[in-house]
Amino acid sequence: MTGMPRSGTTWLSRLLATAPGTALTGREPMNPRERQWALAGSLDGWTRLRDPNGKQARALRRAYRGLAPGVYSSFGFRQWRGPLPNSRLIVKDPFAMLSMPAIHTITGARPVLVYRHPGAMLVSYRRMGWAPDVAELRPHRRGVHPSRRPDGRSDPAVAGRRRCGQRSRHGLVLVGALCDRRR
């Protein structure tokens, strides 16, 4: 189960874990923050695994089979069932979003991508008192500048050069943090 933070991955994971024969790990195996597992200590930030090394592949297999104690926490549900045969283990991890093809190849897991409207996610961030750290994702941008459209021309809507409430070329009405309030 993956998706952007605050997109509903926890809610949907907990809902799915109420089905018979399921378990939810509780920790995010690829989360490098604080006391999380960070793929057995092999990660230090958001990662796009394309060709995991041996340690990472073993850690992924253990985590997705329920054999890694580091992925269990008080946020899980029916964790005792995780490593049992014929159990479905639900692994919730927003940090796995960029690595789903490699995770599927190594573990055979069926990825579920949760999508939530970006505006609703930002409202949720504000409610939690969080601020998105865009710098974390910079290494994964593939050379696209946030104020440029795919054709290379400047996009004033993204660059924040339009006034609040003014409609962009794409029909987006800018509100909140995206507005340039100085005009």
Rank of each mutant, 00 (worst) to 15 (best):
P85W: 09
G70N: 07
P69H: 02
L67A: 14
L137W: 10
D133A: 14
P111G: 07
V114H: 07
R62L: 15
P85F: 09
K92V: 03
A109H: 04
G108T: 01
I103L: 09
A102D: 02
M128K: 14
Y125C: 07
R116C: 02
G70V: 01
F77E: 14
R58V: 08
T107I: 06
L60I: 04
P69I: 00
R78K: 12
Y72H: 03
G108N: 05
D93V: 05
R138D: 10
A63L: 05
D93Q: 06
P85K: 02
Q79D: 07
I106A: 05
A131K: 14
A57R: 15
S74Y: 13
P139I: 01
H140R: 03
S73D: 10
E136M: 13
D93W: 08
H145P: 01
R138W: 05
P85T: 05
T107W: 10
P111Y: 13
A109I: 04
P101H: 07
D133C: 03
S124D: 08
A102I: 07
N86H: 14
P94C: 06
G152T: 09
W130H: 14
R62H: 12
R138E: 12
P101L: 04
H145L: 14
A102W: 08
T105H: 10
L89D: 00
H117C: 06
V144G: 00
S73L: 01
R142Q: 13
R81P: 00
H117N: 15
F95D: 06
W130Q: 07
G119V: 11
V91C: 03
S147K: 07
A135Y: 04
S147W: 11
R78E: 07
P150E: 02
L113A: 07
R149G: 12
Y72S: 01
T107P: 06
G108W: 07
M121P: 00
A109Y: 02
Y72R: 14
G70D: 10
S124G: 10
V114D: 03
R142K: 13
P118T: 12
A131F: 03
P146L: 10
A68G: 00
V144K: 04
T105G: 04
R88P: 00
Y72P: 01
L137F: 15
S147E: 12
Y64S: 02
G119E: 15
T105C: 01
R110F: 13
V112N: 08
Y115R: 13
I106S: 06
L98H: 11
A102Q: 02
R148H: 13
S99D: 06
P69V: 01
Y115G: 08
H145E: 10
S74N: 11
L113D: 03
A135M: 12
L60F: 06
L137R: 11
R116E: 04
R126Y: 01
G152S: 07
G152W: 09
A63P: 04
P94N: 04
W80I: 12
P132S: 05
D151M: 03
R127C: 06
G70Q: 15
I106F: 04
R142L: 11
S147I: 08
